[in-house]
Design a protein around this nucleic acid. Sequence first.
DNA 1: GTGGTCTAGACCACT
DNA 2: GTGGTCTAGACCACA
Lengths: 128, 128, 128, 128
Amino acid sequence: MTTIWNDSAPIYRQLKEKVIAMILDGSLKEGDALPSVRQVAADFQINPITVSRAYQELVDENFVEKRRGLGMYVSEGASQLLLASERERFVHEEWPQVLARIEQLGLDLKQLFESPKSTHQKAKKGKE
Amino acid sequence: MTTIWNDSAPIYRQLKEKVIAMILDGSLKEGDALPSVRQVAADFQINPITVSRAYQELVDENFVEKRRGLGMYVSEGASQLLLASERERFVHEEWPQVLARIEQLGLDLKQLFESPKSTHQKAKKGKE
Amino acid sequence: MTTIWNDSAPIYRQLKEKVIAMILDGSLKEGDALPSVRQVAADFQINPITVSRAYQELVDENFVEKRRGLGMYVSEGASQLLLASERERFVHEEWPQVLARIEQLGLDLKQLFESPKSTHQKAKKGKE
Amino acid sequence: MTTIWNDSAPIYRQLKEKVIAMILDGSLKEGDALPSVRQVAADFQINPITVSRAYQELVDENFVEKRRGLGMYVSEGASQLLLASERERFVHEEWPQVLARIEQLGLDLKQLFESPKSTHQKAKKGKE
DNA sequence: GTGGTCTAGACCACT
DNA sequence: GTGGTCTAGACCACA
């Protein structure tokens, strides 16, 4: 029985990424309640504190808001904010590294364009 | 006093990447001696053990060889080996992730390739 | 959809403070009826139990009295009692802390009293 | 045996305030190492995670920086940053509330100025 | 029901 | 030596 967690990144961060992905792809909409800490902890067989930590980072970054005694909710404007900030980070941080790497390895753009385009296999984060 | 080291990746790994980059771009050629552990440690203000660990991984992967009493040297065939293995890793691990990310963010691959061509040199390593 | 409630203090306490402020400034006079729990709950979109808890604390401290079947009323003598107890608390608990903080930050008490006199109405409660 | 901790605020936050106070009053200077997580945990008889959490918030706010494998250090510029941000917060958030409170209670400025000035007794944070 | 905090103890990676 | 992460379990405040 393999778990869904990758060993290289902390679970709380992987969980955070999952939530972000769900907001980006619309499976969590603004105003929706996040599944409760306890629920997620039970579903994924992890410690509630680990879930809490993931959620807390989302709160700190204003993508999620706490309602006392009620739970956590996707903030108004979260998906726009998220899309903007993630795009910004990609275009100005990740993408330049990719370009540099392509150049460093002397790879051919056209080949990259074509070969794995049709399959777009599920990427696994982490490579340690 | 800012350092050249990124906080997100271990220093020994960043150092290893530096050496790999130097082999790939030809500033270290096959048969060349690597700068001594002590020298590097002094230059970068880091612990010699950290340098050793970086070098050791390069030895383990056969890109560098130890000559007892003399130092570390770039192995014969290292640059070819490196190029092949790094290309392999890029095409099958990194690139699919990049494609997935682009799709997730709704970005356009072709635009990315065209627009920021002039500035892509300021990439900072990190994020491992 | 922003709420009037501050996240740092419990809602029931913020509500209690509101009532106290109304008694102190005369908008609720001795003998006046407090708005019903249900009414307040509906007006502010909060749980009736939360309103009850705020009211109950006011009852416990003798500023408000319950009349069975009728509702809650501001006690006779409440405003004097309140003024005295709140002043006591301010002078011996809050004010010394403020002085300590001013000293810690190297600020000048007199300047503070003089300059921003016109704007001091925009204070938000919270920080408990 | 009473502890130094106040019951109303979480320990990690009280600890964070202690560190901030030490930076403000100069007992921790820029570049100084913070006492290690384990050391503080042992000294105060608290869990290392609790200490970690306090330190982490200071890192997130750029007052403290981590050096991998070495420890935590007061950032360059931390004391200026801190003084500026704390003053800002005091003048624009805490002080207006104090003024409003003074007005609400109908207190006399001159009395406040004089009575507790000489003693400046140690304020205790928290009042729950 | 919700989340927040703390403990005790374990294991890991890094320098 | 340093900090980071996770667990299991407890207790608390809030709605």
